[in-house]
Amino acid sequence: MSRPATGDPTTPTGYLGGPARTGSRFTFWLGAATLAGFAGVAALGLLVVPADDVQGDAVRIIFVHVPSALGAYAALGLTAVGSVMWLWRRSQWWDITAHAGAEVGVLLCGLMLVTGMLWGRPTWGTYWEWGDVRLVTALILFLVMVGYLSVRALGGPAGSVSTRAAVVGLVGAVNIGIVNRSVNWWANRTLHQQSSLTDGKLEDMTLLTLILAFVVAAMAIWWMVMHRFRIGWLERQLADRDIHQAVQARRAEAGR
């Protein structure tokens, strides 16, 4: 556990070697741009884009559903990479990134499931379709990552929690592939449409809005992960400072 050598350990800012907050000028403008982007996607998606010939107004859900699905997998990929890097190199940076990715990923995975079900009801006539590979895989992924967060919440020595969580992240990442495979064979009657992007059936305006939604989602994820990372980083620094003080107090016991 290395800590910055500079600064006075008794004041938070001095010891942390930087301002004790999670925002910066960059994240402020990134957040502002993201909010503007959300407004733009909402305006385009709700007012400009025409209703779909087949799906009607329900098609508008894809502007939330598809970006949150891709975002969920991207964030959880971050968790998988971070888990490996912690186990391999004991990199604190990656450990905190893995945790940040999992929290954002669970949020987006939940959003994907809810919007998917809302879309499924008018389109397929049912909220839940067991035969759909992506839906079932996403649910299992959601449950695995909830397990990851519950291990993170167990508490205990910092290194021990990181290692336990990293193994769960690794096990989850490998097994989610097998889950996908098995559900694929099992269901073998998928309702899920093929990728909406490549089948060429989307209206121009719909496609444009979807692309904008992807960009905005990427910005939102970036913003969330950065803030969550900095919270994790500050938590570490704070814990280090507490330990530093505890070491001093303990040495004082011995009269030194």
């Binding site: 205990g156 020595p157 330990i243 505890a246 303990r250 040495r251 011995a254």
Partner: peptide, 13 residues
């Protein structure tokens, strides 16, 4: 040598 048991420094140098 510093050894932490949880957050308690059982060995403090």
């Amino acid at each position: 040598a510093v050894v932490l048991l949880g957050r308690f420094p059982a060995l403090a140098g």
